[in-house]
Design a binder for these strands. Structure first.
Length: 616
RNA sequence: GGGCGCGUGGCGCAAUGGCAGCGCAGUUGACUUUUAAUCAAUUGGUUGCAGGUUCGAGUCCUGCCGCGCUCACCA
């Protein structure tokens, strides 16, 4: 339950006074003739001064009450404009609302009047009519701006506590314009990607989010259950297998932009759910995908920021094609100065890396491919790939859906082994961050089946790397899948690049956060209700209506003061309960999964640890 | 999950273990061209939660909760 603080009580009081005076606090409609930006524009193209009459709406962001004349800035999505509020123009009654500050900063208002310029030079609405559109009961955080002579804006006071900003994104957006701009650019990014892919002749499709079998990537899935069908379902970790089935169905090229879910840690570049873009195009290989990738990134950057050269975290990045392309083998040669093909097994490679002092944090039981990709590339090379770089030709055991590399070893044993153990796959990196992944897709059903089996042999059942064998996917492939190139990329990371944000959370409107501890008031209410409901549910066999009646009677009698998340803790471990202190009067029953305890008939206060001891 | 850091009025921040303070916002008053308006007065706090050490804890110790950074994990 909401417990208004001092500021909120003041606003509630104002709201009551306004309402008592017959004012509508939340009228259903208003007449808007211009957006704020249009109103300013109209003033500029105004031939005769004072001839432009506008009705604008917005939220009050600044209010300067000064005797018989006042100034307010209102803001709508298009920008801000000043309201010039004068007793003579506005009239006694309306002006009184302003002068008495019954209309506050943060309220939504409607203002009508002619456009004018104040003596200080600011274009303003000479307000003749001011109407409240929505009364704000909780004030937003205070942020003041100063516009300097050179046009730059500096802020005084900020709303920057990250936790509150993420949990109360609406307040963050309402106060921080730069945050709003990020999400405008995000929308433009996704639109640009769609436009680009549509123009490439690809068909946008939608595939299941709930899948009976997950696959297409190496990640732990979320599991859920369909009650009626008695079926476990996975939230997808990628779209890959469903999209490629569509190429079997006869589409030349398909793409999907949507949400993936991975049950893994969060970081500045990982969120449990994130937006993925995947496309598959028949009759091209990974070289073709590279070309599309480069053009797509350059195009999107141009659409969003007006240039394919961008500035990210102080670095100048040029997304203009062509990008640097090199094989992972060449990358290791270039950055770490050795040829890993000289160490063709995980044992020999590990021994060599140890001798070079490069084995820190490396698991000696890892597969050969993982040592190269996860360790050498991931830990030693990735962070140095600042300008867009395509790294291609990956070891096979980490690439179960990519086609073997082509080429002629010409009798050279080392080269023969290289060709045999590598696939036509590439990842690309910008500013040290992996941006996407692509292959010449495997379309030989026999090879694909062998890969599934091989993965099962190489990785434990519960390893992230393991990919469940998908019989239906193999069946689809047996019907004939055209040769094709596929692509997958994290859209959030792309938005990070284009908006110069260093955390994925800043490009997600609602990033995933832990459940916060509920306030004591919430707990009090929740606990009282739980206690009452439980008492009735388990002690009395009554019709629902009677239960409700008794709950209503019972509630006021229960006086509970607790200082923790009681509801959750009761289902938690004993250790979690140690610090709880519970005080209650009246009859109270506490439920756990197995037991049902009658606690006390009279006032009791004890630590939960003691309570637990007394009943076990 | 490990390490480091942070948590103090609505927001931003102070406080060698010794009276919890400042700015903004708010409230009251003055002001008919302000724009971080100004001037005068003024309200507002169980310092994330629970224990402990101490004559005395925002500060030190322990546990817990949350957030950030980082490592691990991770296309």
């Amino acid at each position: 339950m909401w417990q208004p603080n001092k500021l909120e009580k003041e606003r509630l009081e104002k709201a009551n006074r306004l309402e008592a005076g017959g004012l509508l606090l939340y009228p259903g409609r208003c007449q808007r003739s211009h957006t704020v930006a249009e109103a300013v524009e109209a003033f500029h193209s105004d031939k005769a001064p004072g001839s432009t009459y506008v009705s604008v709406v917005g939220r009050i962001r600044r209010l300067n009450t000064k005797g018989k004349v006042s100034f307010a800035h209102i803001e709508d999505e298009s920008g801000r404009v000043q309201l010039f509020l004068r007793l003579n123009t506005l009239g006694e009654e309306s002006y009184e609302l302003v002068r008495r500050k019954l209309i506050d900063v943060d309220d939504f208002v409607h203002a009508s009047g002619t456009m004018m310029r104040t003596r200080a030079g600011e274009i303003s609405v000479d307000t003749a009519q001011l109407t409240l559109l929505s009364k704000t009961l909780s004030p937003l955080p205070v942020v003041k701006e100063q516009r300097r002579a050179d046009g730059s804006v500096s802020e005084y006071g900020e709303f920057k506590d990250t936790e509150t900003r993420y949990r109360q994104r609406y307040a963050d957006l309402a106060v921080n314009k730069s945050v709003r701009e990020v999400f405008v650019k995000r929308a433009r990014t996704i639109k640009a990607l769609r436009d680009f892919l549509d123009n490439e002749g690809m068909l946008e499709v939608e595939t299941p989010i709930l899948q009976p079998l997950y696959g297409g990537a190496a990640a732990r899935p979320f599991v859920t259950h369909h009650n009626q069908l008695h079926q476990d379902l996975y939230l997808r970790i990628s779209f890959e297998l469903y999209l490629k089935r569509l190429l079997v169905g006869g589409y030349d090229a398909v793409y999907e932009i949507g949400r993936d879910f991975r049950n893994e840690g969060v970081s500045y570049k990982h969120n449990t759910e994130f937006t993925m873009l995947e496309f598959y195009k028949a009759y091209i290989d990974y070289e073709g995908v590279m070309d599309i990738t480069e053009r797509m990134f350059a195009y999107t950057a141009e659409q969003v920021n007006g240039s394919s050269a961008i500035r990210y975290q102080g670095a100048e990045l040029n997304l203009t094609p062509p990008w640097k392309r090199l094989s992972i083998r060449e990358a290791v040669q270039e950055y770490l100065d050795f040829d890993y093909m000289d160490f063709p097994s995980s044992e020999t490679l590990y021994a060599y890396l140890q001798s070079r002092g490069l084995a820190d944090g490396l698991d000696r039981d890892d597969t050969w491919g993982r040592m190269i990709v996860e360790h050498l590339l991931g830990n030693h090379i990735e962070e140095r790939l600042i300008q867009p770089t395509i790294i291609k030709d990956y070891p096979r055991d980490v690439s179960p859906f990519a086609k073997r590399i082509r080429g002629d070893a010409a009798g050279d044993e080392k080269e023969r082994r290289y060709l045999e153990s590598h696939t036509e796959r590439f990842e690309f990196f910008i500013h040290g961050m992996e941006m996407g992944n692509a292959f010449t897709e495997l379309n030989d059903p026999r090879d694909q089946q062998a890969r599934f089996v091989e993965m099962k042999r190489l990785y434990d059942e519960d390893s992230d790397e393991t990919t469940p064998l998908d019989e239906d996917y193999l069946r689809a492939m047996r019907f004939g899948m055209p040769p094709n190139g596929g692509f997958g990329s994290g859209v959030d990371r792309m938005v990070m690049l284009l908006t110069d944000q260093d955390s994925i959370r800043d490009v997600l409107l609602y990033p995933h956060l832990r459940e916060p501890a509920p306030s004591e008031n919430d707990l009090r209410g929740q606990f009282m209700l739980d206690a009452a409901v439980r008492q009735l549910e388990y002690q009395l066999d009554l019709p629902l209506a009677e239960k409700k009646r008794r709950i209503a009677l019972y509630l006021p009698k229960v006086e509970v003061g607790i200082e923790f998340r009681m509801a959750n803790a009761l289902e938690g471990s004993l250790a979690q309960l140690q610090n709880l202190r519970v005080a209650f009067a009246g009859q109270l029953y506490v439920m756990t999964d197995e037991n049902f305890y009658h606690v006390q008939d009279e006032l009791t206060e004890m630590r939960i640890a003691d309570f637990w001891r007394s009943i076990t």
